[in-house]
Write a protein that binds this DNA or RNA. Structure first.
Lengths: 139, 139
DNA sequence: AAACAAAAGAGAATGATTCTCTTTTAATAA
DNA sequence: TTATTAAAAGAGAATCATTCTCTTTTGTTT
């Protein structure tokens, strides 16, 4: 995601465009494996050596609350983030903390068809995502 | 889960049978909404007023590591637990921290069929679970 | 009953994240 | 361009869920 795109995204959400916000959103986009705050801070410190840890946490929170990034569901106490807002699923490594994206339109269509017909009593569905747990093979 | 069942489960896993372990496993089974450590501690304190917080964390960890309970994937930093080991999915409330179980064999079958034919390059699937995000309706 | 190692207890330590208060800054209006 | 305003950043402290450490207790086996 280019700086201009980021800038526009922030404006669209009514957020002020600050260098820190640009840097954080860029970092979440660029870093692999659904980065934690710690990794994002590390990355940003290269270009913004004085950025405050609290600021990064605040920026991540603002970005997530405004739908510019998403938090990823994990079992651990460290929160992780994802810049891809398009519909996709996650591959979770059963042996490490690696998480990868998985897109599959056919699967999405199948699930959509299924839940169009299938009612879950007392619950109205907004989104369906797969947690696909397994092992990454050496590549 | 009755005490006898719990006892047997622990023995099967080569774990010592302690009152604390029985109480914790029972609590995870009984409490709704995929309880956090805090809720479990609260509950247990009724029958074991002197149980140490550290012990509960240790027990939860031992139970999870030995496959007697599962950790639930959430976006928050507080870990949560699930006593149901049978194949099931989770309903996540988009507005609160409520999480409910959702079982659906037809869906499981459909997904199994799908991934029997569909290869994810570089990844071998062990399990597939749905995160179904939406709103619980008043009941 | 003795032995042994796992487990519990108690309190301290850890670290990811949030809070608090002040200063800075981005955006807007004039 | 300047002034204004409110959002945002900074800095360090505070919070709290969880883990650590060391000692004692306990469950299980012989």
């Amino acid at each position: 995601m280019k700086t201009e795109e980021i800038r526009r995204s922030l404006v669209e959400k009514g957020l002020k465009v600050t260098p820190q916000r640009i840097a954080v959103l860029e970092a979440v986009t660029i870093l692999n494996n659904h980065p934690s705050a710690d990794h994002i801070i590390e990355y940003i410190r290269k270009t913004h050596p004085n950025v405050s840890t609290a600021t990064v946490y605040k920026v991540l929170d603002a970005l997530a609350e405004n739908g510019l990034i998403k938090r990823v569901k994990t079992e651990r106490d460290i929160m992780r983030y994802d810049a891809i807002l398009d519909k996709h699923h996650h591959l979770y490594c059963s042996e490490s903390d690696r998480i990868e994206d998985y897109s599959d339109e056919q699967l999405d269509q199948m699930l959509e068809d299924y839940f169009r017909r299938k009612d879950i009593p007392g619950f109205s569905i907004e989104d369906v995502k797969l947690q696909i747990i397994g092992k990454f093979r050496q590549t």
